[in-house]
Protein backbone atom coordinates (compact mmCIF):
# COMPACT_ATOMS: atom_id res chain seq x y z
CA UNK A 1 0.00 0.00 0.00
CA UNK A 2 1.45 3.35 -1.06
CA UNK A 3 0.26 5.31 1.97
CA UNK A 4 2.14 8.47 0.98
CA UNK A 5 0.41 8.55 -2.39
CA UNK A 6 -2.97 7.95 -0.81
CA UNK A 7 -2.35 10.81 1.59
CA UNK A 8 -1.11 13.05 -1.24
CA UNK A 9 -4.24 12.53 -3.34
CA UNK A 10 -6.58 12.86 -0.37
CA UNK A 11 -4.89 16.04 0.82
CA UNK A 12 -4.84 17.50 -2.69
CA UNK A 13 -8.57 16.95 -3.07
CA UNK A 14 -9.36 18.35 0.38
CA UNK A 15 -7.24 21.43 -0.43
CA UNK A 16 -9.23 21.84 -3.61
CA UNK A 17 -12.39 21.73 -1.51
CA UNK A 18 -11.05 24.38 0.83
CA UNK A 19 -10.32 26.66 -2.11
CA UNK A 20 -13.84 26.24 -3.44
CA UNK A 21 -15.61 26.28 -0.10
CA UNK A 22 -18.15 28.82 -1.28
CA UNK A 23 -19.49 26.86 -4.20
CA UNK A 24 -19.13 23.44 -2.66
CA UNK A 25 -20.67 24.13 0.72
CA UNK A 26 -22.49 27.43 0.81
CA UNK A 27 -24.39 26.94 -2.45
CA UNK A 28 -26.02 23.60 -1.51
CA UNK A 29 -26.89 24.96 1.92
CA UNK A 30 -28.65 27.95 0.39
CA UNK A 31 -30.48 25.75 -2.11
CA UNK A 32 -31.64 23.38 0.60
CA UNK A 33 -32.74 26.29 2.80
CA UNK A 34 -34.91 27.49 -0.07
CA UNK A 35 -36.53 24.06 -0.29
CA UNK A 36 -37.34 24.25 3.40
CA UNK A 37 -38.83 27.70 3.05
CA UNK A 38 -40.97 26.67 0.08
CA UNK A 39 -41.92 23.07 0.89
CA UNK A 40 -41.58 23.12 4.63
CA UNK A 41 -43.07 26.45 5.64
CA UNK A 42 -45.19 27.63 2.70
CA UNK A 43 -46.68 24.35 1.49
CA UNK A 44 -45.96 22.15 4.50
CA UNK A 45 -48.43 24.02 6.69
CA UNK A 46 -51.29 22.90 4.41
CA UNK A 47 -50.16 19.28 4.23
CA UNK A 48 -51.35 16.52 6.48
CA UNK A 49 -48.88 14.55 8.59
CA UNK A 50 -47.38 11.50 6.91
CA UNK A 51 -47.06 8.42 9.09
CA UNK A 52 -47.50 10.69 12.08
CA UNK A 53 -44.60 12.93 11.06
CA UNK A 54 -45.24 16.61 10.23
CA UNK A 55 -44.63 17.24 6.53
CA UNK A 56 -41.78 19.74 7.05
CA UNK A 57 -39.91 17.19 9.15
CA UNK A 58 -40.88 14.33 6.82
CA UNK A 59 -38.98 15.85 3.87
CA UNK A 60 -35.73 16.50 5.82
CA UNK A 61 -34.10 13.11 5.06
CA UNK A 62 -35.14 13.33 1.41
CA UNK A 63 -33.68 16.80 1.00
CA UNK A 64 -30.40 15.80 2.61
CA UNK A 65 -30.28 12.83 0.21
CA UNK A 66 -31.03 15.07 -2.76
CA UNK A 67 -28.00 17.26 -2.01
CA UNK A 68 -25.86 14.30 -1.04
CA UNK A 69 -26.47 12.50 -4.33
CA UNK A 70 -25.90 15.47 -6.62
CA UNK A 71 -22.90 16.80 -4.73
CA UNK A 72 -21.29 13.36 -4.39
CA UNK A 73 -21.51 12.79 -8.13
CA UNK A 74 -20.37 16.31 -8.89
CA UNK A 75 -17.37 16.28 -6.54
CA UNK A 76 -16.10 12.85 -7.41
CA UNK A 77 -16.54 13.27 -11.15
CA UNK A 78 -14.78 16.64 -11.07
CA UNK A 79 -11.93 15.25 -8.98
CA UNK A 80 -10.86 12.81 -11.71
CA UNK A 81 -12.16 14.75 -14.71
CA UNK A 82 -10.04 17.85 -14.03
CA UNK A 83 -6.66 16.05 -14.17
CA UNK A 84 -7.82 14.49 -17.45
CA UNK A 85 -8.87 17.88 -18.74
CA UNK A 86 -5.68 19.73 -17.73
CA UNK A 87 -3.41 16.80 -18.61
CA UNK A 88 -1.99 16.40 -15.10
CA UNK A 89 -3.43 12.87 -15.04
CA UNK A 90 -0.11 11.78 -16.59
CA UNK A 91 1.40 11.95 -13.14
CA UNK A 92 -1.27 9.83 -11.50
CA UNK A 93 -1.00 7.21 -14.25
CA UNK A 94 2.80 7.07 -14.11
CA UNK A 95 2.95 6.89 -10.31
CA UNK A 96 3.59 3.65 -8.41
CA UNK A 97 0.00 3.34 -7.20
CA UNK A 98 -2.72 0.77 -7.76
CA UNK A 99 -6.17 1.58 -9.14
CA UNK A 100 -7.53 0.73 -5.69
CA UNK A 101 -5.36 3.42 -4.10
CA UNK A 102 -6.35 5.96 -6.75
CA UNK A 103 -10.04 5.27 -6.10
CA UNK A 104 -9.55 5.28 -2.34
CA UNK A 105 -7.88 8.68 -2.55
CA UNK A 106 -10.34 10.38 -4.88
CA UNK A 107 -13.54 8.71 -3.71
CA UNK A 108 -12.47 8.92 -0.07
CA UNK A 109 -11.93 12.67 -0.33
CA UNK A 110 -15.17 13.24 -2.27
CA UNK A 111 -17.13 11.14 0.23
CA UNK A 112 -15.60 13.06 3.14
CA UNK A 113 -16.71 16.25 1.51
CA UNK A 114 -20.24 14.89 0.95
CA UNK A 115 -20.44 13.74 4.53
CA UNK A 116 -19.49 17.18 5.82
CA UNK A 117 -22.03 18.71 3.46
CA UNK A 118 -24.77 16.31 4.59
CA UNK A 119 -24.17 17.14 8.24
CA UNK A 120 -24.11 20.89 7.55
CA UNK A 121 -27.43 20.63 5.70
CA UNK A 122 -28.92 18.65 8.57
CA UNK A 123 -27.80 21.34 10.99
CA UNK A 124 -29.28 24.01 8.72
CA UNK A 125 -32.57 22.08 8.52
CA UNK A 126 -32.72 22.01 12.29
CA UNK A 127 -32.97 25.81 12.20
CA UNK A 128 -36.17 25.57 10.17
CA UNK A 129 -37.77 22.38 11.43
CA UNK A 130 -37.63 20.67 14.81
CA UNK A 131 -36.92 17.02 14.11
CA UNK A 132 -35.38 14.18 16.01
CA UNK A 133 -33.13 11.36 14.97
CA UNK A 134 -34.23 8.02 16.34
CA UNK A 135 -31.20 6.00 15.25
CA UNK A 136 -28.24 8.42 14.98
CA UNK A 137 -25.68 5.69 14.29
CA UNK A 138 -27.78 4.18 11.51
CA UNK A 139 -28.27 7.69 10.15
CA UNK A 140 -24.49 8.23 9.94
CA UNK A 141 -24.13 4.76 8.46
CA UNK A 142 -26.63 5.49 5.69
CA UNK A 143 -25.02 8.85 5.06
CA UNK A 144 -21.56 7.29 4.66
CA UNK A 145 -22.72 4.40 2.47
CA UNK A 146 -24.77 6.65 0.22
CA UNK A 147 -21.90 9.14 -0.10
CA UNK A 148 -19.48 6.36 -1.02
CA UNK A 149 -21.92 4.79 -3.49
CA UNK A 150 -22.56 8.01 -5.37
CA UNK A 151 -18.95 9.17 -5.23
CA UNK A 152 -18.06 5.88 -6.92
CA UNK A 153 -20.68 6.58 -9.56
CA UNK A 154 -19.31 10.11 -9.93
CA UNK A 155 -15.77 8.79 -10.30
CA UNK A 156 -16.90 6.48 -13.10
CA UNK A 157 -18.67 9.38 -14.80
CA UNK A 158 -15.53 11.51 -14.48
CA UNK A 159 -13.45 8.82 -16.18
CA UNK A 160 -16.07 8.32 -18.89
CA UNK A 161 -16.78 12.00 -19.64
CA UNK A 162 -14.71 13.69 -22.31
CA UNK A 163 -16.47 17.03 -22.13
CA UNK A 164 -18.19 19.18 -19.56
CA UNK A 165 -21.63 18.49 -21.02
CA UNK A 166 -21.17 14.75 -20.53
CA UNK A 167 -20.40 15.43 -16.89
CA UNK A 168 -23.88 16.92 -16.56
CA UNK A 169 -25.89 14.36 -18.52
CA UNK A 170 -26.16 11.56 -15.97
CA UNK A 171 -26.74 13.79 -12.92
CA UNK A 172 -29.33 15.89 -14.73
CA UNK A 173 -31.06 13.29 -16.89
CA UNK A 174 -31.05 10.30 -14.57
CA UNK A 175 -30.16 11.04 -10.98
CA UNK A 176 -32.22 14.20 -10.60
CA UNK A 177 -35.50 12.65 -11.90
CA UNK A 178 -34.92 9.48 -9.92
CA UNK A 179 -34.42 11.53 -6.79
CA UNK A 180 -37.53 13.61 -7.29
CA UNK A 181 -39.55 10.47 -8.10
CA UNK A 182 -37.83 8.60 -5.29
CA UNK A 183 -40.10 9.72 -2.50
CA UNK A 184 -37.98 12.61 -1.25
CA UNK A 185 -41.05 14.82 -0.88
CA UNK A 186 -43.75 12.21 -0.41
CA UNK A 187 -44.46 8.69 0.68
CA UNK A 188 -44.79 6.31 -2.23
CA UNK A 189 -47.83 4.92 -0.41
CA UNK A 190 -49.58 8.08 -1.58
CA UNK A 191 -49.20 6.93 -5.18
CA UNK A 192 -51.68 4.76 -7.15
CA UNK A 193 -50.87 1.06 -6.83
CA UNK A 194 -49.33 0.84 -10.29
CA UNK A 195 -46.88 3.69 -9.67
CA UNK A 196 -46.02 2.28 -6.28
CA UNK A 197 -44.87 -0.86 -8.07
CA UNK A 198 -42.88 1.19 -10.60
CA UNK A 199 -41.25 3.15 -7.79
CA UNK A 200 -39.88 -0.04 -6.33
CA UNK A 201 -37.51 -0.22 -9.30
CA UNK A 202 -36.05 3.17 -8.39
CA UNK A 203 -32.93 2.68 -6.25
CA UNK A 204 -33.27 6.15 -4.75
CA UNK A 205 -36.53 5.07 -3.07
CA UNK A 206 -34.53 2.61 -0.99
CA UNK A 207 -31.88 5.17 -0.09
CA UNK A 208 -34.35 7.84 0.96
CA UNK A 209 -36.49 5.39 2.90
CA UNK A 210 -33.58 3.77 4.68
CA UNK A 211 -32.37 7.20 5.66
CA UNK A 212 -35.84 8.27 6.74
CA UNK A 213 -36.18 5.15 8.84
CA UNK A 214 -33.10 6.18 10.82
CA UNK A 215 -34.89 9.44 11.65
CA UNK A 216 -38.45 8.39 12.36
CA UNK A 217 -38.33 4.62 12.63
CA UNK A 218 -40.66 4.02 9.70
CA UNK A 219 -40.31 3.68 5.96
CA UNK A 220 -42.11 2.55 2.81
CA UNK A 221 -39.65 -0.30 2.28
CA UNK A 222 -37.81 -2.64 4.62
CA UNK A 223 -34.51 -1.57 6.11
CA UNK A 224 -32.91 -4.78 4.86
CA UNK A 225 -33.99 -3.99 1.31
CA UNK A 226 -32.45 -0.52 1.68
CA UNK A 227 -29.10 -1.86 2.81
CA UNK A 228 -29.18 -4.52 0.12
CA UNK A 229 -29.84 -1.91 -2.54
CA UNK A 230 -26.95 0.30 -1.39
CA UNK A 231 -24.62 -2.70 -1.28
CA UNK A 232 -25.68 -3.71 -4.80
CA UNK A 233 -25.20 -0.17 -6.03
CA UNK A 234 -21.69 0.03 -4.57
CA UNK A 235 -20.84 -3.37 -6.04
CA UNK A 236 -21.99 -2.32 -9.52
CA UNK A 237 -20.01 0.93 -9.38
CA UNK A 238 -16.87 -0.87 -8.21
CA UNK A 239 -17.28 -3.40 -11.02
CA UNK A 240 -17.57 -0.63 -13.62
CA UNK A 241 -14.51 1.22 -12.30
CA UNK A 242 -12.54 -2.01 -12.00
CA UNK A 243 -13.33 -2.70 -15.65
CA UNK A 244 -12.29 0.84 -16.60
CA UNK A 245 -8.86 0.46 -15.00
CA UNK A 246 -8.48 -3.08 -16.24
CA UNK A 247 -8.95 -2.04 -19.86
CA UNK A 248 -7.42 1.43 -19.51
CA UNK A 249 -10.76 2.78 -20.76
CA UNK A 250 -10.48 6.52 -21.55
CA UNK A 251 -7.39 6.69 -19.36
CA UNK A 252 -4.61 4.81 -21.09
CA UNK A 253 -5.64 4.72 -24.73
Amino acid sequence: MNVYALRAIYRFEMDRMRRTLLQSLVTPVITTSLYFVVFGSAIGGRMAEIDGVPYAAYIVPGLVMLSLLTESIFNASFGIYMPKFTGTVYEILSAPISPFEIILGYVGAAATKSLILGLVILATARLFVPFEILHPLAMIGFLVLTAVAFCLLGFAIGVWADGFEKMQIIPMMIVMPLTFLGGSFYSIKMLPAFWQQVSLFNPVVYLVNGFRWSFYGQADVGIGASLGMIAAFIAICIAIIWWMFRTGYKLKN
Partner: peptide
Protein backbone atom coordinates in the same frame (compact mmCIF):
# COMPACT_ATOMS: atom_id res chain seq x y z
CA UNK B 1 8.76 12.05 -16.26
CA UNK B 2 8.70 15.59 -17.57
CA UNK B 3 5.89 15.69 -20.13
CA UNK B 4 5.88 17.71 -23.29
CA UNK B 5 2.69 19.61 -22.52
CA UNK B 6 2.76 22.19 -19.74
CA UNK B 7 0.16 20.30 -17.73
CA UNK B 8 -0.07 21.83 -14.28
CA UNK B 9 -2.60 22.47 -11.57
CA UNK B 10 -2.98 26.18 -12.19
CA UNK B 11 -4.35 27.04 -8.74
CA UNK B 12 -1.78 25.13 -6.72
CA UNK B 13 1.21 26.82 -5.09
CA UNK B 14 4.53 25.57 -6.46
CA UNK B 15 5.73 23.93 -3.26
CA UNK B 16 2.48 21.99 -2.68
CA UNK B 17 2.60 20.52 -6.13
CA UNK B 18 6.19 19.36 -5.56
CA UNK B 19 5.27 17.79 -2.22
CA UNK B 20 2.28 16.14 -3.90
CA UNK B 21 4.50 14.53 -6.53
CA UNK B 22 6.91 13.24 -3.94
CA UNK B 23 4.10 11.64 -1.97
CA UNK B 24 2.48 10.23 -5.08
CA UNK B 25 5.67 8.34 -5.85
CA UNK B 26 5.68 6.81 -2.40
CA UNK B 27 8.41 8.86 -0.75
Amino acid sequence: LVPQELSTNAFEPVISTIRFSRGLFGK
